[in-house]
Design a protein around this nucleic acid. Sequence first.
DNA 1: TTTGAAAAATGCGAAGC
DNA 2: GCTTCGCATTTTTCAAA
Lengths: 167, 167
Amino acid sequence: MSAMSKLDALDVSILKLLQQNGKRPYSEVAKLLEVSEGTIRSRINRMLNEKVFEFIIHMDPNKIGLQVQAIIGIATKLGYQEQVAMKLNQCREVRFVGVFSGRHDLILQAYFKNNEALVDFVNGELAQLEGIDTVDVSIELKQYKDSFSYIVNGEGHLEENSNGVRK
Amino acid sequence: MSAMSKLDALDVSILKLLQQNGKRPYSEVAKLLEVSEGTIRSRINRMLNEKVFEFIIHMDPNKIGLQVQAIIGIATKLGYQEQVAMKLNQCREVRFVGVFSGRHDLILQAYFKNNEALVDFVNGELAQLEGIDTVDVSIELKQYKDSFSYIVNGEGHLEENSNGVRK
DNA sequence: TTTGAAAAATGCGAAGC
DNA sequence: GCTTCGCATTTTTCAAA
């Protein structure tokens, strides 16, 4: 294992502020947490190195022309799970793939321009793959939540002890 | 509908560069696309206003102490779908909720500290909700892909005509 | 709308604590 | 590991094409 230091209260506080706005300046974070900008910068760079998080943009699929979202559950033949997952990995339409316990061996999330593109994907790319037993397609009708703020207040989830301010 | 102008080739080129790195400076994008920095900035600000995309950070759930990821399919009693979705929306553990066609009426994705927290969620919060028929829990064993780059090269998906450079 | 240049703010490296 | 302090870069602002 590489540099796998645990996050302390200050790190979590920084993430909590950045998850509200990925463009928030380091100096602003520093003021809010009452430490110097240099400290914020070194913490962020360390976390980026350790791949704790990354700066990205999140596009609204609808607004960029991807109107159809599907979640697809797949049952694979014994021994084919990894092979199928690797193939799906390479599909442009696929945003997410994982191996799961439960009813489906693999679950993936994919975006398409329209219904026709989805059908082409299922009957074309999926049908060609070896080792697939059954496919269960669910099409999104309405989205209620799609959040990236994993750090929340209140019991249960991750939370820093104090508010990250050193006394 | 508010300001719902269609994205042109330059907009798509900008998104394509930003999706590789959310911290890329506007001046660098401008150089690559051979327009002025001011143009990039005004395009980005317009898209931010229209909520085409947003700057966020993407955290690795494992690295911030959320070791268990689940996808949960729910069948609701007739007429309860929206009500249940709204409740799930408020749950801290829930990252994603949508109404779907197919086997499950609702599908949600949620992160937990450990298996115990997952069990508490299913037997506690979920069990309390009115209008749920069946619950199908799938636990992630291995993740293969979790991408946010929706704009890809090649046929099929969104793509700008040229490379966005004005002649 | 896009551009260009000046002002303000942010991010970065190095030295010292 | 945190801070301060110059310096380079970036973002913002605004007048003009």
